[in-house]
Design a protein around this nucleic acid. Structure first.
Lengths: 124, 124
DNA sequence: ATCTTTGCAAAACCTTTGCACTGCG
DNA sequence: CGCAGTGCAAAGGTTTTGCAAAGAT
């Protein structure tokens, strides 16, 4: 029932090529290099459609508009560069969060966000 | 030089009395019980002013609109109960996040959010 | 009396929606 | 062809800003 339009495939390609979570606006500008007429409404509609299809996961960081990345990456966290505002995946994870759990609470899952300067900004 | 207006004090009182982080809209409705004419613009301007003054800290959780609480709590993280949706402070913190830092990146700070069941919900 | 702060309304954002047209299947 | 998907523009929702009036020092 989902049609494989040029727009839908362009957005998929952009997300796969980026390898990091992108904001709707980042998706828009990158997709417009493939299809210049592609509009922001299509970006939002395609994001929601790909999410329902399980192809796309939201990356929600505190105080930030949601970003999106292709699904199937397994457990990972994010590094937010405070200079260029880009977000990078971190695949290393320390695992003793149980120590932080308050007495009597049950821990299901955790989120970690690291903030700082990415390699590229650091070299400028 | 900040003037101590009725509006500013009302918003301070609301936040102190609540004892939990409030959204701008929650601050508005609670403040209007003290000063009915108080407007949303004043809420936002006062939030920003109190933040600059260091009296107020944002509590930003992934996918949630920002909330605000009075400052002075020191370094802490949050436990978000998935059943009652309340957020609790966690004052214990493990400290080897440097291990997760990608090569070439500089780590300034970190955020941790634990998700699960709080003691009260667990006992129900 | 001065000059910040307020309240209102408009503007600036971001995301969603309505509608006629395009184009995939 | 038929109908889901697109592009545009307009509508919602939230936060910010401009300005005359109110009010704190």
């Amino acid at each position: 029932m989902k049609r494989n339009t040029r727009q839908r495939q362009a957005i998929r390609d952009v997300l796969i090529r980026a390898g990091r979570p992108l904001t709707p606006h980042e998706i828009l500008t990158a997709s417009q290099e493939i299809i210049p007429s592609l509009g922001i409404a299509t970006v939002y509609r395609t994001i929601n459609s790909l999410r329902e299809a399980g192809e796309l996961n939201p990356v929600e960081l505190p105080g930030e508009t949601p970003r999106y990345e292709m699904a199937g990456k397994g457990h990972h966290h994010h590094f937010h560069c405070l200079h260029c505002d880009r977000v990078f995946d971190i695949h290393k994870c320390i695992s003793d969060f149980e120590e932080m759990r308050p007495e009597g609470f049950i821990l299901d899952r955790h989120a970690v966000i690291l903030y700082g300067t990415c390699e590229e900004c650091n070299n400028k």
